[in-house]
Design a protein around this nucleic acid. Structure first.
Lengths: 186, 186
DNA sequence: GTCTATAACGAGATAGAC
DNA sequence: GTCTATCTCGTTATAGAC
């Protein structure tokens, strides 16, 4: 794996555990085994690193979505929760988008825009998937699609925070289970 | 208002807008009109300031709860959402507990403990209030109390983040409306 | 209580050698 | 690509005068 990719993976790790203002070029450079000045060869500024992090996360997510595109809607939603549950159980990480939203006001305008775009993309994915679920009759036919998308997005972000705070993997898992139960067809 | 109280109010403002690692003694001292060294007279360390902030927020919350203790359960829940909605619409603030959970791993053990205690207290309040609502027959009688408490807590935290990200006051308000709709008796 | 002054450190960032 | 060296700035924190 090339140095830039390794740096990005490490930076994402620190982003999800310490927050954007909680790690430095030094932190990443030490873990990588190079000098912090060398990191500037790949990322001109921390701002740049932030942009690369959100772009990288977006690419990961879009690959995931593409890979599972052909599955039934309900399975896709289950797999979405599996994905976030992996984050929750991996050293109490939280979602990169959630972290960056907590640090939102210390970020540049282009970075803010990029984070919002990711969020809206995920929201659109949820709405599409709910519509598919309705066509496939796996979801309650009186489902309020927009409201449910907002509920899913907010409780995933908040649920990851809560799992960290409570130091209990069941917290997030139970939350997901109940979210799914409330939307599936009787 | 004495200097310590004013300092605490300003610090809470910066905590909720910039995160715990996003503001400094300098930030607060400038807004307060004194030198940052003088702030150390009130708070020995930033750690201390963090403890005071969470204690202060807890006192505010407990006073609020006491004031409304005699109201019907459903009204109390509505007022809870009003309180958080004020946070969301005031410069896109988020909950102090949520902020500190995002920065959790850079905090000391006593501070972590204090944050968890606040969260568990709020969770207990929700559970008590749901039970009251069931006795008063204002809530759906098949309500899963524990699961609903988790859902409320997580979607409030996540909803505040989402309202900031989307820069839209309606996001949080609609979320609250739907949370309430789903638990009220038909 | 508030001040000046300063210590000690870590951050982001750049210049230029290899 | 990676290094050493350095700059500048902001951070927490302390000592001691007023």
């Amino acid at each position: 794996m090339d140095t830039r990719t390794r740096a990005l993976d490490l930076a994402r790790h620190y982003l999800q555990t310490l927050g954007f203002n909680g790690f430095s070029f030094q932190t990443v450079a030490d873990a990588l085994g190079i000098r912090k000045a060398s990191l500037h060869y790949y990322f001109a500024s921390k701002e740049d690193l932030g942009m690369a992090l959100i772009q990288d996360y977006r690419t990961h997510y879009e690959n995931w979505a593409r890979k599972n595109a052909a599955l039934p809607a309900l399975e896709k939603l289950e797999l979405l929760f599996v994905m976030f549950n992996k984050i929750a159980t991996d050293e109490h990480k939280i979602c990169p988008v959630g972290v960056l939203t907590a640090d939102f006001n210390s970020l540049s305008r282009p970075l803010k825009k990029k984070i919002l775009e990711f969020h809206l993309g995920q929201r659109a994915w949820l709405i599409r998937t709910f519509k598919e679920g309705l066509e496939q009759k796996s979801l309650r036919k009186d489902l309020d699609i927009e409201a449910t998308a907002e509920l899913f997005l907010s409780s995933i972000q908040g649920g990851l925070l809560m799992a960290r705070l409570r130091n209990d993997p069941k917290v997030f898992k139970n939350l997901c289970k109940n979210l799914l139960k409330n939307i599936t067809a009787p």
